[in-house]
Design a protein around this nucleic acid. Structure first.
Lengths: 236, 236
DNA sequence: GAGTGGTCTAGACCACGGA
DNA sequence: CCGTGGTCTAGACCACTCG
């Protein structure tokens, strides 16, 4: 382990990752070109192959390198960069802004979902799910409107009333899930939304939609309408 | 390595990851509770500690576990789930939809950025940057409108005219960068946008904004306005 | 100080995928 | 086939952090 000293900071596999990134940055290794094998790099850096492997694996996971057996490792030509999105509970998100969090339960009843929702979740025509509408507040002002369809089966013996704890946090703590699909899109404020969020009808809102499933059976479908000005941010 | 057989599929560290997830899922290990040490698990699964480490490390990276030295490993109470967002070049994105990609260069001139842009990038009052406006097309129809401010210094000796290759792809291949900030938000279509994208003024559009920097100095600021119906999707 | 995770090593075998 | 990355092992030392 004796890389020149790219930065006096990194050591171990992080030093190798940094050195590889430097060589790509400085165009010593060009986009699309092959780089030496793990073994060769292990010799060059006087370390074990496992250490090189760790460094290259991380770079491959973040889209900088492409690796294939037998062929070897190449610098990604059109790198698909991977950004990491932290999905936190809304309360955390509000508190992270330095505001106090609260929520109001606006609706809660069991009914047959409308066709688009039913189709999307693959439910029987007569299935009844729980519909819950929650307004999330930051320092008392509307922050986001949540409309949720929820499989009543997950509630169990003693269904909470969701006045003390929000549906979201109850689910996180009580209903483990396997997979979720998240999507972001823009949509004009609907009449009810506009009224509750106190914006003009048709205002451009960022919508976050989340669909959660256990094995193959869906658990819940959530739509979060955020106020104008809300941004989803990430670093790459 | 002899875990019962949770699934006949997984082996090695993935089997351990799956088994740990199962125990959390089945509430054998509760949210907030400590789990056994790596060494104990290595004994239980009859494998090396490094193998357990790999499994637990992955789970910690995805926010399911929280690890600290000396203290040990616990199940995250309010897990901050991490979703991975693939950021591809637009051409790839269009082609992934099964459409043919093309683009049109609408504007390209060097000028002083407006105040908000200048402030955001931290530029001198008299700095001149390149402004480039590109319309991206899928099967000949508008897909997204890109407006970009670009530091002319990165163009070098022979500035490309961006008619053959899009700015984005040229940058990806020629200007390495260190950091980028990405954000998503909703905004109403501006007059020029509405005209070019062929939507009504004020239509809710999803905007992707990306700010790229080399060391500390900014390289480019891009705003992508997507047509209604466009979604950013990810899995968790 | 002592217990835990974080990393490294040297070697081994395996799995994939070009030739 | 056989070269490459993917993983595993057994052991070691280190770094952090709590008591």
């Amino acid at each position: 382990m004796d890389i020149g000293q790219p930065q006096p900071k990194a050591r171990g596999w992080e030093a190798i990752r940094a050195e590889v990134q430097r060589r790509i940055h400085d165009r010593i290794w060009l986009p699309g070109a092959m780089i030496p094998t793990e073994e060769a790099l292990a010799v060059e850096f006087s370390c074990a192959r496992a250490t090189v492997n760790r460094a290259l694996r991380e770079l491959a996971e973040s889209g900088v390198l492409e690796r294939r057996r037998k062929t070897g490792t190449r610098v990604a030509a059109l790198p698909v960069r991977r950004a990491v999105l932290d999905i936190a509970v809304i309360r955390r998100e509000v508190e992270a802004l330095g505001a106090s969090y609260a929520f109001r339960l606006l609706q809660r009843h069991q009914t047959t979902p409308p066709d688009p929702v039913r189709d999307r979740l693959g439910l029987a025509a007569n299935a009844k799910w729980l519909f819950v509408e929650t307004l999330h507040l930051a320092d008392g002002a509307p922050f986001a409107l949540e409309t949720r369809w929820l499989d009543p089966a997950v509630l169990g013996e003693t269904p909470p009333d969701f006045k003390e704890i929000s549906v979201n946090e109850w689910l996180v703590g009580n209903v483990p899930y396997k997979a979720a699909r998240i999507s972001f899109y823009a949509a004009p404020a609907r009449p009810r939304e506009a009224g509750i969020l106190n914006v003009k009808l048709g205002t451009a809102l960022l919508i976050t939609e989340r669909e959660t499933a256990q094995e193959t059976s869906p658990i819940t479908l959530v739509r979060l309408a955020h106020l104008p000005g809300y941004r989803v941010e990430t670093t790459l």
